[in-house]
């Protein structure tokens, strides 16, 4: 089985414009993953599936991950001169990281019995630009799983043959697996809150509205 570096070195000349990164994984037995930009994801996935040395014909697992806006803190050592004496001071650097949604594909080969190669795709943001290419045209097994990622995370897969909600009902609003999802007080369709739901509702109604 080739390492992610070897795959990247063979893939990069074929897609000169693509941005391919290898993401580290600190877990001792874990696999590192290939991050490909959405515009070239379908071509890269096609290479992974059809290449004679890889033959990743089996897309085992498709997963969504939500990464909300965050501030990443890194500690940096700096030399500061205080009253003529040079001192080493530890400073915390804060870099804001805009949020995004991530979709993971765990690819194996049934023919050559190796794997996995982990393919990661990232959306531009979490709000209005959550489009990613669908890999269902390459692996039929992604069909229901991409529908699930759409349903629970709100990633819109372009080129998916039948993108509908799968686990939640069709009229459902929102995407419950997102980290900032707030469950409604009552899932039942009933416009007026009552009993314990009324107490919950009072907490976030504007004060002038008497529910």
């Amino acid at each position: 089985m080739e390492t992610p570096e070897q795959i990247k070195s063979r893939l990069a000349p074929l897609l000169p414009l693509a941005q391919i990164d290898i993401l580290p994984n600190d877990c001792p037995a874990g696999e590192r993953s290939l991050l490909v930009d959405p515009a070239h994801a379908l071509a890269a996935a096609k290479f992974l599936r059809d290449d004679l040395q890889l033959r990743l014909d089996y897309c085992s697992n498709v997963t969504g991950i939500d990464w909300p806006d965050a501030v990443i803190k890194t500690k940096v050592k700096k030399k500061v001169t205080v009253e003529g004496v040079e001192k080493e001071v530890e400073e915390t650097m804060e870099t804001p990281r805009p949020g995004y949604l991530e979709v993971l594909y765990h690819l194996y080969s049934m023919e050559l019995k190796h794997g996995p190669v982990v393919l990661r795709l990232r959306t531009a943001n979490r709000a209005d630009n959550t489009q990613l290419p669908s890999l269902t045209p390459l692996w039929r097994g992604a069909e229901f799983q991409e529908r699930e990622v759409y349903d629970l995370y709100g990633v819109i897969f372009e080129g998916h043959p039948d993108l509908r909600r799968i686990l939640m009902w069709d009229e459902f609003k929102g995407h419950p697996m997102r980290r900032d999802y707030v469950a409604p007080d009552d899932y039942e369709y009933e416009p007026t809150p009552h009993d314990e739901v009324l107490d919950l509702a009072k907490k976030h109604y504007p004060p002038e509205v008497k529910a």
Binding site: G154, D162, L163, Y181
Partner: peptide
């Protein structure tokens, strides 16, 4: 919660 556009393509109903 930000709004998410409807998925492309017609539901297959």
């Amino acid at each position: 919660m930000s709004a998410i556009a409807d998925p492309p393509g017609k539901p297959n109903y």
